[in-house]
Design a protein around this nucleic acid. Sequence first.
DNA 1: GCGTCCAGGTCTACC
DNA 2: GGTAGACCTGGACGC
Length: 322
Amino acid sequence: MPSSSARGHLRRVARFGFTARPPYSFALTVRKPAGWHWLTPGEVWDDAAGTLFTGLRLDDGLAVGVKAWGRGTVARPRVVVEAFAARVLTAAERRALKRTLRRALDVDADISGFVRLAARDAVLKRIARPLHGMHEGFGGGLWPLLILAVTLQMAPIKRSMTMLHALLDHYGQRLRFDGRSVRLWPTPARIAAAPLRELKARCKLGYRARVLKAIARQLLAGFPSLEELKRMSPEQATEKLQELYGVGEYSAAMVTPHVSFPLDVWSVQIFARLFGIRIPKDRDPRALIPRVARAAERRWGAWRGLALVYVLNALDQLGEKS
DNA sequence: GCGTCCAGGTCTACC
DNA sequence: GGTAGACCTGGACGC
């Protein structure tokens, strides 16, 4: 009888348990109310079991299926992760996987300062309770974040999702494990090698096809990892990211591992209304970005990045349209 | 059905 | 250094 991996299915190769710093909600962290994915678009959430099936790629290129679920409570939280792969992990891969999951789950972050801020802030206290324990925890790595930032540029969200899913369907990799199927992001090498016209036509990317290929080539030529960007000063990391073709202020703010407050033409209007800043009808809302960003920094300081995530995941409660 | 407009930015040429 | 204009595509809208 053929082994499960011989049929294209991955087998279980590791199991990790993480103790998270409370307050921590696994479900809210990996499955945000606004519908954003944790590691890869189209990951599978089993609502009855509270279990997420998703996947990632290690730095050496090994594809890993990830099954994760929460244990305990928001006040005494734990996360269990099972990893699936086509072969046994080396000790180095095992360590790298654990480190990546730990960072992506955000289990070590202490958000008690944010909880105290949210209790006294007029905007946050309207939304914080149902989101109690939600961490940023947006994973996937530098390249997936760059793909996301580029596909969000100059496009309504529906079109951005069309582009993302087409990229995963045509250039990504499908993983089958534990009876589920998920898609992994395409590699930079795959996008760099794809013919421009084909990439453009298949994924409806328009000018972004050229941008993604340029970024993929820059990454392949050598670029700091998220960990290395984190070790730089926030200014240095932003400057480095903006060396990538097609990455401007907004995209760099989306991708940087430092505290940031990425504002675009849509979100700047939401935060302007929340801060009581008048939006002139005859001016491009983008002109308000520096002013709204300063207001967020004054109001929320180092917690402004998490505050942004909370607000964008609670637009209904705030009377804003998503 | 058809034409027009413009979006959840960024780069480049031009002044 | 500041600022139009171009960039892809497809959904929304007016007719």
